[in-house]
Amino acid sequence: MSDKLVTITVDDKEISAPAGSYLLPVCLENDIYIPNLCYLEGMETPPASCRLCLVEIEGRPGPQVSCRCLIEDGMVVKTNSEEILKLRQIAFRLLVSTNDGSCKSCISNRSCELQQIAKFLHQPLRTKRLRHIDRAYPPLIDDHPYLVYEPKKCLLCGRCVYVCNNIEKGYKLSFAQRGMDTIVSFFGSDLDPASAFCKECFACTEVCPVGSLSSKEKWKAFVDGLK
């Protein structure tokens, strides 16, 4: 990023921003909302894995991920073309088609980013358009000494893996398995907390957009509160 400002047009609105910034944060700062899940502010190379932040850029073929698109002077961006809206809706429906559980009994109810995106896209949180896909995991994995993980809520955005490895340098969270069976996993066990080498920074739980990963303590308090 440099001090030089460039001007881009997003949905007919002119925006000036430092050259070399990524398009997604520039739009977000200028009140143009683009749905996103895997992006975190300050990421050097965002993983571009949730595929919700797709936009159209004049002169480039096909939809582009705005989180990894460096802005250039004179760039013309459309965040709401028919094709983009359709792709986003399908991506959203795909995500919710694998999700289980009700919002009422979820620790992230009302602070959930998926709920916000649903509202923005005018999409229901339970889709009737697609078959439901049940993921082959128990609702709760709690063998970590300090964390609980609800895999059926997890959107595999990877924010937790990113902060653990790139920010906190804990190197404890990782993806495991393939295809639909992919989950976030960790080493170590409840029986021997030392084996987890977890710093108990809980950065991973703070970045989780949907409350799939929580600190054991908070989660217990939440469950007790439900009773």
Binding site: S49, L156, T182
Partner: peptide, 24 residues
């Protein structure tokens, strides 16, 4: 779909839906 790395939404879930529909 079994060999998808699971990283991005379309491949991970989209190909699974394709398989489910084709199976049906």
């Amino acid at each position: 779909q079994g060999e998808s790395c699971g990283k991005c939404t379309f491949c991970r879930i989209g190909t699974r839906h394709l398989r489910e529909i084709l199976h049906s």
